[in-house]
């Protein structure tokens, strides 16, 4: 098709004798001139071919590696998301426990179980001048617990089956007892580290205070 038009066109241009014709002829000649050059270039040069093939190969390999990496990542993301879900679940379960254990009902019941009584005569220490406001009186065992004799009367269905501190066998076993020998062992660093994981640190006499020199 193009060959036909290439044959026809020159005649028309010659007839018209327009200046364009010369240029078009030039360009055509130019095109013709290129062909042999390309032919010359097409002579195999193994180095270039080798480089090209190597590059193509390199690209293919890189792409493969990348996609392997990406799909590896996808599995890793999937795995981590599963871990996240299960950690969230654990977090939820643990904070649910904390919240229900810190409910006033549970605290009061445990205070009762530990034999704590409430002191009905509050006394205040005014920090500005050290004045004692109110008349201090020790709480007597007969003063009664915070819930009175009847125990907790404010229902909380979440506490069903939650044992009191005094009933928890494993915690009681792990708790360092307040007797002298146990307190001493708790004071050694190794025992401290061992006990800190599962049981509260024993309070030996006074309130804990930072040691300063």
């Amino acid at each position: 098709m193009s060959a036909t038009s290439a044959v026809e066109r020159p005649d028309a241009r010659i007839l018209h004798g327009s200046p364009d014709v010369g240029r078009e002829e030039d360009s055509r000649r130019h095109l013709e001139a290129v062909a042999p050059r390309a032919g010359r270039r097409a002579k195999p040069r193994l180095v270039y071919a080798g480089i090209t093939v190597m590059m193509v190969l390199a690209i293919v390999v890189t792409q493969l590696l990348l996609s392997i990496g990406v799909s590896q990542g996808a599995y890793r993301i999937g795995g981590l998301q599963d871990t996240k879900t299960s950690l969230q679940r654990e977090y939820q379960a643990v904070s649910e426990d904390v919240n229900r254990l810190s409910s006033p009902q549970n605290l009061a019941a445990n205070a009762n179980a530990l034999g704590m009584v409430s002191n009905g005569t509050p006394v205040y220490l005014r920090l500005s001048d050290g004045a004692v406001l109110g008349s201090p009186a020790p709480a007597s065992g007969a003063a009664g617990t915070v819930t009175g004799a009847s125990g907790n009367l404010v229902p909380n269905a979440l506490l069903n089956g939650v044992p009191l501190v005094t009933q928890t066998k494993n915690v009681a076993g792990a708790l360092p007892s307040t007797s002298g020998s146990a307190a001493k062992t708790a004071a050694t660093p190794s025992a401290n580290a061992a006990s800190s994981g599962s049981a509260p640190v024993a309070l030996d006499g006074a309130l804990p205070a930072p040691t300063t020199h």
């Binding site: 649910e96 919240n99 409910s103 006033p104 404010v154 229902p155 979440l158």
Partner: peptide, 8 residues
């Protein structure tokens, strides 16, 4: 929903 303090 959960109500940690129960009837409080």
């Amino acid at each position: 929903r959960t109500y940690p303090d129960g009837a409080v």
